[in-house]
Design a protein around this nucleic acid. Structure first.
Lengths: 222, 222
DNA sequence: CTATAAAATAAGGCTAACCATAACATTTTT
DNA sequence: AAAAATGTTATGGTTAGCCTTATTTTATAG
């Protein structure tokens, strides 16, 4: 049915693809950025993934996952987010660190362990960063929401998920209480890619646009 | 103080060394056997470990761990055995599989996660295979017991630990109820490296010598 | 003390993932 | 339509960890 055993690197590429655009084409250099490798290396790897039938690449148009690739990617996501739940709820690991640690564990997790873990956790549907956890059968509908960067002055919204992966970014956001479930109001949007001024709880915070991109929100009708 | 980050392969070598002889010299080909690599590869790797100050190798005499190497090795053991406890007690993974799964996880476990896991598990002292779990500070006294292979006809003993690592061997032993805590009696020791005949519970079982080597027991005075 | 077995080393090769630099192709902008 | 920006490919290099096939060194048993 699905795939035997994929290298850690392969899993990271697949996960990156599903994380930064589900179903749309991704330019290879965008992938490279997210994975912290050079575009040349990413191209090389994409070729290898193509040979394995995991992605299809149309030069100058982008890559996307094949059916097989998406299955594998969703499976990685499942493992990762289950570990996130465990690390957060049971081990009480600090929120900003769980992504990093879960990411190491995910590659070392056999199917039997994944399912036992899911059962132990009570089949959670959401991870601590707010993202949905794919089901065993691979069914998975990505969060419907918009990026915080798309809001206008005066908009009110609830934070659905925080998709940052770097520990320091997560820490920065955590310090400002920008966490799943919180509600916020956009006080001001500065021009020229300038920062957003937000009111979260009763705090006023400035947030750069690039960080705001990581925050998925749902507009609250007002 | 201790070491930054060791590769998975490095950790496996260190663990193998502490597992198959604590404090005694090990011949490199013995290491190679346990790790499933050729003696040539093991020699190469031992050289690299030597350069990192983790082992010291005296040609034709054997290798042993340096202080630094032993610290690292004991740390790996700690992580591994903690995961074994989690997999067995909480995830209810089958006994014969926990070594294999724990072994993957151990290499992906940061210190913060290790300690949080230990706390979550209630600082267990023993893993499901019967081995002691090293403490955070690295203190660790190996089990004192003898190998089942050293027993004589008529001896009675209690099984302290089962040190096999291969899943199929563990399964074989599990099927014959050769598990930590069980008591047994040696019915017969066949000559010429022949099998032992054992009475475990009320069952009579024949066990080859090489498998018996994996079983650590304590003689019961009679 | 020499013969044999065991351990070690030498030499050359392979793979997955990375890197840099440079050339080339395509898309987008002006 | 030309220039600029972006994406891709070519080429050659690196590292860790493995491999095989000799060859050499040492330990040990007769």
């Amino acid at each position: 049915m699905t795939v035997r055993h994929l290298s850690e690197s392969t899993e990271m590429y697949l996960k990156a693809m599903v994380e930064l655009s589900d179903h749309e084409m991704v330019m290879v250099p965008r992938l490279a950025e997210r994975l912290g490798v050079t575009p040349v290396s990413a191209n090389e790897m994409v070729r290898r993934l193509g040979e394995q039938g995991l992605v299809s690449h149309t030069p100058y148009k982008g890559v996307n996952l094949t059916k097989k690739g998406r299955e594998a990617a969703v499976n990685v996501l499942r493992r990762q987010r289950l570990w996130e739940v465990f690390l957060h709820d049971h081990l009480k690991i600090e929120w900003s660190h769980i992504y990093e640690y879960a990411c190491s564990l995910e590659h070392a997790t056999a199917p039997e362990v994944t399912e036992a873990l899911a059962a132990f956790l009570g089949d959670p549907k959401t991870c601590p960063r707010g993202n949905p956890i794919p089901a065993t059968d691979g069914s998975f509908k990505p969060l419907e929401g918009i990026s915080l960067g798309e809001l206008k002055t005066g908009d009110k919204a609830r934070i659905l998920a925080v998709n940052a992966t770097a520990t320091d970014v997560l820490q920065y956001l955590q310090e400002r209480d920008i966490l799943p479930g919180r509600e916020l109001r956009v006080v001001e949007v500065a021009p020229l890619q300038g920062p957003l001024t937000l009111e979260v709880g009763s705090r006023i915070t400035a947030l750069g646009l690039s960080m705001a991109e990581f925050v998925i929100v749902k507009l609250i009708k007002s």
